[in-house]
Nucleic acid binder design. Structure first.
Length: 331
DNA sequence: AATCCTTGCAACCGCGTTATA
DNA sequence: CTATAACGCGGTTGCAAGGAT
């Protein structure tokens, strides 16, 4: 059955809110709470539909709203979460305190989407646009670089989703059965186990965090800080960061790739086969010829090689919190 | 100075989901 | 279990402000 219309009643006002209307709504909610939105307008003396009141409150009048320019950190979070969640603005907003989904949606559509387009990256898929490959710099090598970057990013994002799900399983299984000391079992393939312990995965993912952070920070002497529109700089910076990452974490990443591939629920990764992952390793290691001996034990991870990610002792805890937040989101 | 164009954002609309009788 | 009401979300629109011509 269709939903009943709420805004087509005769006499109800539409359009921009006046300060007087804002004041009425604010005063009423502060005193009584919003209660039923449908009943609120009459009680508050407003010639508006409840839906309009609700929207006005949520997007504008609510006291815990931060307005104004988005910080660099907020931009990074939006881009990362958009790659992970798509246009689920409310989900993204849940990770940006004091920002509304509407504001984030607007900011994405008016700023971030354009920026990614300028960089030759499809804002929908977060992969390089095929018709733009090679055109941004005129260099086919850059196009290949972008393609590989997209594969890396895709794998990373799948890793995030996988990790948070599995770590939730770890927590639930350990709490329900103290004798369960093995690695978390895969949901779609019980035989397959994750390639690394959770702390190891966290380190790997932390490295990815550093990589992505690096995409937006560059060096301090340029004016690219807020607007990394230079594809060349973007690529060079990515290579530098990725190379450091590969040196230290290739085995974990490679195994994670194989691990993801076992799960039919991750369709994006289904399109990548083991050769893709191997090829990525060979390609990434081309300049430093450490392809055959890249594997390093997790305890040797060198945090300083991950670009701008924090190397403080508290960063791991922050990282755990970050992923736990995502866990709550995707679970 | 006038007009047109672009941009940013508040608000609306319609659909899916959830709650309730 | 079903029908209906209400809520919440994401896509879209409309308009004001600023910039370009």
């Amino acid at each position: 059955m269709g939903r009943s219309p709420c805004c087509d009643k005769v006499g109800l006002k539409k359009g921009p809110w006046t300060p007087e209307e804002d004041q009425k709504l604010l005063a009423y909610i502060e005193q009584h709470g919003h209660g039923s939105w449908r009943a609120l307008p009459a009680k508050a003396g407003l010639q508006r539909c409840g839906k309009s009141c609700r929207l006005r409150w949520i997007n504008y009048l609510r006291p815990d709203i931060k307005r104004g320019k988005f910080s660099l950190q907020e931009e990074q979070t939006i881009i990362q979460l958009h790659a992970l969640l798509g246009n689920r603005w409310s989900g993204i907003a849940a990770h940006l305190p004091k920002r509304t989904d509407n504001e984030i949606k607007n900011y994405w559509n008016t700023h971030l989407k354009k920026r990614l387009n300028k960089m030759g990256i499809d804002p929908v898929t977060h992969k390089p646009k095929t018709n733009a490959l090679g055109s941004a710099t005129g260099n086919p090598k850059d196009a290949a670089t972008l393609s590989h970057m997209a594969q890396w990013e895709s794998a990373r994002l799948e890793a995030e989703a996988r990790l948070v799900r599995e770590s939730k399983l770890v927590r639930s299984s350990s709490s329900s059965s103290s004798s369960s000391s093995s690695a978390p079992q895969h949901t779609s393939n019980p035989v397959m186990t994750p390639p690394a312990t959770r702390p190891q995965c966290l380190d790997v993912l932390k490295a990815w965090q550093g990589l992505v952070t690096g995409l937006f920070t560059f060096n301090n002497t340029t004016d690219n800080l807020q607007s990394p529109t230079s594809t060349l700089n973007f690529v060079e910076n990515t290579n530098t960061l990725a190379n450091g990452l590969i040196n230290d974490n290739s085995m974990e990443l490679h195994e994670m790739g194989a691990w993801f591939r076992q799960d039919s629920s991750y369709r994006a990764v289904e399109n990548m086969n083991m050769e893709d992952y191997s090829d990525m390793m060979v390609w990434e290691s081309g300049d430093h010829q450490q392809c055959s001996s890249m594997a390093a034990p997790a305890e040797n991870l060198n945090e300083t090689s991950y670009g701008n990610s924090s190397s403080s002792s508290s960063s791991l805890e922050e990282n755990r919190n970050y992923w736990n937040n995502i866990l709550n989101l995707v679970s």
